[in-house]
Design a protein around this nucleic acid. Structure first.
Lengths: 210, 210
DNA sequence: ACATAAAATGAATAATGATTCACTTGTTAG
DNA sequence: CTAACAAGTGAATCATTATTCATTTTATGT
């Protein structure tokens, strides 16, 4: 026996995988999934295309993983906002803000996650991601119902409406169809946008004018 | 001069174009945009692929036109519901019902229009289509504000939230990721789904518990 | 140094589907 | 009937990209 995988090699491989993955992320951040081709990613990572395939089964697999990780960060942030102190309503409000503000801060990635046309495997991830949001919201709504700050309702349904309302409100502003000039809203405008989304959503939940 | 386009010929051509167009519609209704290939459409219409290109500049052009027409029908129905007698709130409610019920009745087409990943040109049509809905809703909201049945608010924003909430609520049920069994909801379930969407939306608009 | 095995390479291949175009067929007017 | 032109044809071509694989490079243990 003359070759056995050593620690050093394991590290180097892990590094390579990481580098590829991160370059994939960067590609998506720059031009969305559509313009992110395996050849580009490999090139950016400084490896041959063939090498990429040693680390990922297929393009779809790679981008599904990228999607998943980008998504997880976002979902975590929302979960975090929901895990603070206060009534369910306050926490939901904070979570919606978090969602919208983060999206407006990183518009290309946000658009890719929310609305860009993608391959089926990635689309499947998107479905999961939206469901993940919905489940977090749903939980908070149930808590709200329990504590009396939210009137009884189909928590599942309402949570889906929340996700839809906020996502749709962002699609327009984030869309690359807009010129960059249009996409760059003033902080003032952003603030207003977020406020009116939150307002609609909380009213929809509580049936209480605010 | 020996050949000049005659009435008969004009008709025949119009017929051919129509046939191609309609077969395109059928293809989309059956399997969505993804599975609708020019070759299929041509075959279904009983013409050669080359012929199709005498009537449509490109695949994208053809399907964008198909999308537009399918969409127009839906938007018209909503506009119709909004044009009846009654307060803005009642009319908006009727419009939301119309939207949801029609979608549940033709799930494949509805999914294609609302959520299927599509080519850029078609995606652009989708943006317009969602805006068309939003504009109709917006108008009704403004009327509601004027007549006092809806509290003052950013009508534009609220209308976008309506579109998002209803679309998102339908994506899950319509998605072909669901088995057909899952997708076939009982009329009972459909009714409940529609009710809870409408409830959330009207509350979001009016801030009044119902 | 050398044998062994894994990792990296990237040009060649495969797969998919839209689009073209040289040619055939059909239509019209004189 | 025939010249003149338009419509129709569909196999061949083109374009785009993901994926493979024969070959080269690199790492390891003796």
């Amino acid at each position: 026996m003359a070759y056995r995988e050593t620690e050093k090699m394991r590290n180097r491989k892990a590094e390579a995988r990481n580098r590829i993955f991160n370059c994939g992320v960067r590609c998506v951040m720059e031009g969305g999934f559509r313009s992110a081709q395996v050849t580009h990613v490999a090139q950016a990572a400084g490896v041959a295309t063939g090498t990429l395939y040693r680390y990922f089964d297929s393009k779809e697999e790679l981008f599904a993983e990228i999607f998943r990780s980008a998504t997880q960060r976002e979902v975590d942030k929302v979960a975090e906002a929901l895990a603070t102190e206060g009534t369910a309503v306050t926490r939901l409000e904070a979570a919606l803000r978090q969602f919208a503000e983060r999206a407006l801060r990183g518009p290309t990635m946000a658009w890719s996650l929310i609305a860009e046309p993608v391959d089926p495997k990635v689309e499947a991830e998107r479905l999961l991601y939206r469901q993940a949001y919905a489940r977090h919201f749903e939980q908070a709504i149930r808590e709200g119902i329990e504590e009396g700050s939210v009137p009884p309702q189909e928590a599942r349904q309402s949570s889906t409406c929340l996700v839809g309302a906020i996502a749709e409100s962002l699609v327009g502003p984030l869309s690359p169809a807009q010129t960059d000039a249009e996409r760059t809203m003033s902080p003032q405008q952003q603030q207003e946008l977020v406020e009116s989304i939150v307002c609609f959503c909380i009213q929809g939940l509580t049936g209480t004018r605010r």
